[in-house]
Write a protein that binds this DNA or RNA. Sequence first.
DNA 1: TAGTGGTCTAGACCACAGG
DNA 2: CTGTGGTCTAGACCACTAC
Lengths: 242, 242
Amino acid sequence: MNAKYLNIYNEIVSQIQSGQLKKDTKLLSENDYMRLYDVSRDTIRKALNLLEQEGYIQKIKGKGSFVLDINKFDFPVSGIVTFKELAKMMNEKSRTILVSLDLDLADSFTMKKLNISSEDKVWKVVRVREIGKNKVILDKDYISEKFVPNLTKEICEDSIYEYIENSLGLKISFAKKEITVEKATKEDKKNLDLKEYDMVVVVKSYTYLDDASLFQYSESRHRPDKFKFVDFARRKTLYPNG
Amino acid sequence: MNAKYLNIYNEIVSQIQSGQLKKDTKLLSENDYMRLYDVSRDTIRKALNLLEQEGYIQKIKGKGSFVLDINKFDFPVSGIVTFKELAKMMNEKSRTILVSLDLDLADSFTMKKLNISSEDKVWKVVRVREIGKNKVILDKDYISEKFVPNLTKEICEDSIYEYIENSLGLKISFAKKEITVEKATKEDKKNLDLKEYDMVVVVKSYTYLDDASLFQYSESRHRPDKFKFVDFARRKTLYPNG
DNA sequence: TAGTGGTCTAGACCACAGG
DNA sequence: CTGTGGTCTAGACCACTAC
């Protein structure tokens, strides 16, 4: 059983996504929703605040809440979305090819990235993502053995995240991501269909669990023309007091 | 006078940024903070939730709240940050050069981007950003005259956002951004020090005001090696009930 | 068992928008 | 003036963590 405010949030999200609540439509007032769902105002406010945070609505003091027109699902690298979830949203055929799967003692690179000692073992997974007929993404994942004792070809070709969340019951909580553009390496050229491009877009992620432990470092290397990142951002004044 | 929870939020942010609260430190409990600031628990929770949202802390049920180690201020294109704010954070010398400033009737490109009619006028501002000794960013801004009746060389060379927020009193609320990599145009090559690169990273933004009206479209075109985007993302399960 | 954060409630006062 | 969202309070019960 979910929290009430999450149920309300999800219900309104579906109404927006289904087109039942159209762009610029005014939502019911907080008081109306209170009566509709028979909950307290605070519970409604939690749901609406979440909707606002996620870019679905805009609340305007004295006026009400209004549905925004944001194509959230263009290419949500923002947020933590896995390739499998992404592939499901897009409608092109996609495939994951496992290039290599190794479990070794940490070298200096992974020690630094994952904040571990030379006695820890680390999974190194290299995968190629094919969209349509082109190999356009090279994913390199480094995962501490501490958290994930076992990895198989099947898991890697399906979804590592799904295995971690569903089978191991670990909760992925947040990630720090960094996007840069770099010269393509030999490894990129060997594994990807780079055409004339000699650069790749590199998304580096540090992924953390629920308890704030760092469990994965990954590099996702994209062919430039196939890369698109969409972000929804709210303005924050850095120093509200001047 | 700010809201109490914002004051508390800002106080804890400074404690983290100053190093007074170090990585992995446990914060006071919500009950302790209640007594410390003599406010209700809800007020404390608002402050702590904001800290969590912004990536400063991680709350763990049954244990407490812990300071995270996130270099938030590497290159915050995430969030809506202006070049002037950014330049202040970095320590390199930077300069803005105004290339052109025009007010014309909307053409089909701007009509589509800004959702306006052919009778509306639009400011077109082209600026080059110099960091160190290199011209590395080409900014093209399109702003509805409806919202900003006047623009001068001085404003464009300082900060348009500052003018809009402080002088005009408009509130910038949120933006949709899109990052892609494109072939450099003649305009890019003419205005930027592109060296051997023949591609640019393009950040397209649609910026909205407080009342959800779209007031600006902009393209920020970066030399690839000088581009870096840092993001902090929390994991959201897309469909909590299934 | 004690302490933590997560959810929910009911009620209050405020600032803002619009008739 | 009424209705809207924004803030704040005081109190309750729950689930999880740690001892």
